[in-house]
């Protein structure tokens, strides 16, 4: 759990998007906009994101001297975490632009569909399969 809060620590700088589909749209827009630039780097991070704070993105405030009260609270919180639903934190970075979202279980399929389309559509700088050319060459060799 401490690890995930570490991820979230720098969250103020992230433009958080609540809906996964909105993240896809935003990522697409950024990708198109930066197309012409000589370097196009899109970074995506996937991490397990325990639902500790009911979807809160900013870090939990640190416990202070009034710990007597908060210890009761933290007990509750840990109970909550025990049977909490896990979600997936997704971040996208391009240059200085940062966007992020959290995917719940029920949205996984929808997000994946949109996300895979985004990848297929935009990662077009890779080498294509040379199967056709190779097989032709083989036939000639035989």
């Amino acid at each position: 759990m401490t690890n995930s809060t570490n991820f979230v620590k720098s969250e103020q700088r992230w433009h958080h998007i609540v809906l996964g589909s909105a993240l896809i749209a935003e990522a697409e827009a950024i990708a198109l906009q930066k197309r012409s630039q000589y370097q196009f780097v899109l970074c995506l991070v996937y991490a397990l994101y325990p639902d500790i704070n009911d979807g809160r993105v900013k870090p939990k405030p640190r416990a202070t001297a009034t710990a007597a009260k908060s210890s009761v609270k933290s007990n509750k919180a840990s109970q909550h975490t025990a049977d909490a639903e896990y979600r997936c934190l997704i971040r996208a970075v391009l240059g200085s632009k940062k966007i992020s979202t959290v995917i719940a279980q029920k949205d996984v399929n929808k997000f994946q569909l949109a996300y895979c389309n985004l990848l297929k559509g935009n990662m077009d700088g890779l080498k294509k399969k040379e199967k056709a050319a190779k097989s032709k060459a083989k036939v000639q060799a035989i």
């Binding site: 759990m1 690890n3 995930s4 991820f7 000589y38 370097q39 196009f40 780097v41 899109l42 970074c43 995506l44 991070v45 996937y46 991490a47 397990l48 325990p50 935009n122 990662m123 700088g125 890779l126 080498k127």
Partner: peptide
Amino acid sequence: PNKCRFVTKYIHSKGQL
């Protein structure tokens, strides 16, 4: 599962993933 993260990086100019 709590510690892992997965990162994809696509570099268009190099045609690299």
